[in-house]
């Protein structure tokens, strides 16, 4: 299954009439190996989750079964953890997007003393090992905010620190490519500054916004290193629950759960890709109202893609 997927993938990538002979062959081999390197671990996980074996050892299964999926879905820490993780990821994504967009906008549009410093500050958390961040926050919560320990808000706040560098740099790059005169033109035409931002700037950075949101959500959802310090062992987010169970048992329940997460991530990415095209076009069409002659759908699709 894996080899067929990769060969189809590389076939499409090298299908353009760009090179011939040795060069094309070398490129094909390279791309196949790279795709294999990326996809093989996923394939092993997915494969073992359908296995009838008692231990997930990475080998070819001796039989097939769906029981590990049932086990995973019935395992209480996973059920609780899934709901918990979804809440944390949603909250952390919302906060980091709101704060990150505002910060990126300020850095991109206003000249003020310390703008460069601020940009550096927002990227700084990247250089700190996540376990250190987690430990520091644990000490902070334990000493000053004991009520934040083990709550959705407390963990989401911690995740925001990890997400902001990414959100600020992605949105900052998108904003830097926009002509500031566009927003000024909107204000000149009677739009208040917030309205000018919503109607003119936001639609144009929508793809970056969606990309940042998807990445932020997945990052928060998968986070273990920092989160593990911030919650008691009897009630944890899903990846922490997976981590804790792996310490006890190595049966395919964990790989079954992982397969479900892989499927979920793929669905999310597909939805995001659709949103970047479809929702953008839909909003533009709504903005257009009814008075418009002609329907240049294709041009719009291209612009928002």
């Amino acid at each position: 299954m894996t080899s067929r997927t990769t060969s189809r993938l590389t076939g499409r990538l090298t299908g353009r009439p760009t090179g011939t002979g040795l060069g094309a062959a070398a490129r094909g081999v390279f791309l196949t190996l790279t795709a294999g390197f990326v996809l093989l671990p996923l394939a092993v996980v997915v494969l073992s989750s359908f296995s009838a074996d008692e231990v997930a050892d990475g080998g070819w299964p001796n039989g097939w079964s769906l029981r590990w999926f049932r086990e995973a879905l019935e395992y209480e820490p996973f059920r609780v953890g899934l709901a918990y993780s979804l809440q944390v990821a949603a909250l952390a994504t919302a906060i980091s997007l709101a704060v990150g967009a505002a910060a990126a906008y300020a850095i991109a549009r206003y000249r003020f003393p310390g703008a460069a410093l601020l940009r550096a500050v927002f990227v700084m958390p990247l250089s700190l090992p996540r376990v250190v961040t987690g430990f520091c926050l644990f000490v902070l919560y334990a000493s000053l905010f004991p009520t934040a320990y083990g709550t959705v808000g407390g963990i989401a706040f911690a995740h925001c620190l990890l997400l902001l560098p990414f959100v600020v740099s992605v949105l900052g790059a998108a904003l830097a490519g926009l002509d500031p005169a566009l927003e000024e033109a909107a204000r000149d035409l009677g739009a208040s500054p917030p309205r000018a931002f919503l109607r003119i700037t936001l639609p144009q950075i929508r793809p970056a916004l969606i990309a940042a949101a998807v990445f932020a959500f997945i990052t928060s959802f998968d986070e273990v290193d920092t989160s593990v310090f911030l919650m008691p062992a009897d009630q944890t987010t899903l990846p922490v629950a997976v981590f804790l169970r792996l310490e006890q048992q190595q049966d395919p329940t964990v790989t079954a759960m992982s397969s479900l997460l892989i499927a979920g991530s793929l669905l999310l990415a597909a939805a995001a890709a659709l949103a970047a095209r479809g929702v953008g076009a839909a909003l533009v069409a709504r903005e257009a109202g009814t008075g418009e002659p002609g329907e240049p759908k294709e041009t719009r699709g291209e612009r928002t893609a």
Binding site: A181, L182, A186, I200, V284, E287, A288, E292, R303
Partner: peptide, 14 residues
């Protein structure tokens, strides 16, 4: 505006 500053995501009408 000097370069027009037309909104690229909106049609001429819009």
């Amino acid at each position: 505006f000097q370069q027009g500053a037309l909104f690229p995501h909106l049609s001429v009408f819009d």
